[in-house]
Design a protein around this nucleic acid. Structure first.
Lengths: 135, 135
DNA sequence: TAAACATATGATCACATATTCATATGTATG
DNA sequence: CATACATATGAATATGTGATCATATGTTTA
């Protein structure tokens, strides 16, 4: 079967397609695909990314984050909820305040890899010493 | 200044907030934050993630991808456009067909890290030999 | 316990996004 | 060159998302 015959009405190269399908199922079940895309979705918003970068430097309470990011307390609180639901951040209560910090080492690696992609995309390096962690 | 005085009406610990702000600007400019979250946004959709996983196994034409993923040709084509715009995939034309393949090594690392996060989140390991590449 | 304050949350609205449908584009071939 | 076929794309629609506003919750302290 020639390569040009692969597509078209019911004329797939079934063995190839079946192989890829099986590979897909073996590699990662549909449920995990959902979870995975959800994980990326958490970092798909600039406000949340900013929050994570801020927390990379230091544990912060909600109003401090709002000040740093330049957004309302309510907006930040809503976003922190999402970050917490996805275990990206954790919180510690102290008196009236609630202090947030990063909860997952993998998030930093995710960010690092994401930046590598962006750097390649831009052909314009971004300074990024991500070796540091929460102080 | 006590820790309890940090928040409240105009009573931030300005030096701390200023430090984090500066850290944020130094680490990554706002423009890059946008690009970064955009990159994650590309992988925030299950259909696109499936496409990437399929292409991890083999270069595929549009109709093969549609068959593997189980979605219409049009839907796949729209998503491929987004993946291409973000340099996640590249294409090769051959006669009537257009073959897509992965275009960025970092994407695989991104997926790997994402899976690590999901795995941690689920407390339920996902099989994942991501060592392989395009054949 | 009343007031002040830090945070959380529900409702709303504007905007983004994914799929579908119809159709356009482009290429091979009878 | 007309037809078949592979892919791309614009419009329409349904659903999702993020910021805002108002307000609730919870904690401290006067």
């Amino acid at each position: 079967m020639s390569i040009d015959d692969i597509c078209g009405e019911t004329r797939f190269d079934m063995s190839k397609v079946a192989d890829v399908k099986e590979h897909l199922q073996h590699l990662i079940p549909d449920v995990a695909i959902e979870r995975l895309s959800d994980t990326f979705k958490v970092l798909s918003d600039p406000t949340r990314v900013k929050i994570v970068f801020a927390l990379l430097r230091s544990e912060l309470c909600v109003c401090e984050i709002a000040e740093v990011v330049g957004m309302s307390q309510s907006a930040i609180s809503h976003q922190l909820r999402k970050l917490k639901d996805h275990r990206v951040v954790k919180r510690r209560k102290a008196a009236k305040m609630v202090y947030y910090s990063l909860d997952d080492e993998h998030i930093i690696k995710l960010l690092t890899e994401g930046i590598s992609h962006v750097r390649e995309e831009l052909h314009d390096p971004i300074a990024l010493p991500l070796g540091e962690r929460l102080r």
